[in-house]
């Protein structure tokens, strides 16, 4: 897929999520109006008023959930806006965890963002970096039988940016599985994405974490 194709997908997704947000905003106002009316309606003249109020509350909670999802998807679609961009790595990891959470939940794996307080700005391709990290986590999840924890922590060493992905749990015995990059689609994709990013992925000395290394112009 070339840059133009990716931009096209991004543009369409951004437009649709914007419209979806408008739908949710309308549902929210309409259910809000119903709540307002109920709050000034006498209990006697409205049988099962409480049940209606509870149900309206549930609609609003679901709207809130939908807004969060569309907002994250919209943010994701904008990763395609610029081929290279200054990005806040902590923010990108927070976004990654949100997008990956569902896949981890199915495997009963907890995702932990170990971002530090220090801002790490990096000049790179945000979509490809997100893709590399996603492939790495996805591969780990596929190797996991069930349960465990994946923690993600960023670090900056000079002009190099490191993201360590550590798995703790019974599901995988050795992370050395990462060494054979031809063993799965995710690893093949991770390898080619890292090449595009002018970076590498490797195991740490104790074989407990996968480290994504990329150069930043910042």
């Amino acid at each position: 897929m070339n840059e133009k194709d990716i931009k096209f997908i991004g543009k369409i997704t951004a437009g649709v999520t914007h419209e979806l947000n408008n739908v949710l905003a309308s549902i929210r106002e309409i259910s809000g109006l119903m709540t307002d009316i109920l709050s000034i309606t006498d209990e006697k003249s409205f049988p099962r008023k409480e049940k209606f109020q509870t149900s309206l509350g549930k609609i609003q909670n679901q709207v809130q959930r939908g807004v969060k999802l569309t907002s994250q998807l919209n943010k994701f679609s904008h990763l395609t806006d610029n081929y290279k961009n200054d990005i806040d790595l902590n923010e990108l990891l927070e976004h990654l965890i949100f997008l990956t959470e569902r896949f981890a939940r199915i495997k009963n794996v907890a995702l932990q963002n170990q971002s530090i307080n220090q801002t790490i700005t990096i000049n790179t391709d945000p979509l490809r970096l997100q893709m590399a990290l996603f492939n790495c986590i996805s591969y780990l999840l596929n190797q996991t039988v069930i349960g465990g924890e994946i923690s993600i922590s960023p670090e900056k060493k000079g002009k190099e940016c490191l993201v360590s992905i550590t798995y703790k749990g019974e599901g995988i015995n050795k992370l050395s599985i990462f060494k054979d990059s031809t063993s799965s689609d995710e690893l093949l994709s991770l390898k080619s994405t890292m090449e595009n990013l002018n970076g590498v992925y490797e195991l740490d000395a104790s074989n407990t974490a996968v480290i994504i290394k990329i150069q930043s112009n910042k």
């Binding site: 408008n22 309308s26 106002e29 309409i30 809000g32 109006l33 307002d36």
Partner: peptide
């Protein structure tokens, strides 16, 4: 331009 959204919001403000 979202008619239902804006009209409902307006009603809530008037309330």
């Amino acid at each position: 331009d979202e008619k239902e959204f804006v009209e409902t919001l307006s009603e809530r403000i008037r309330m």
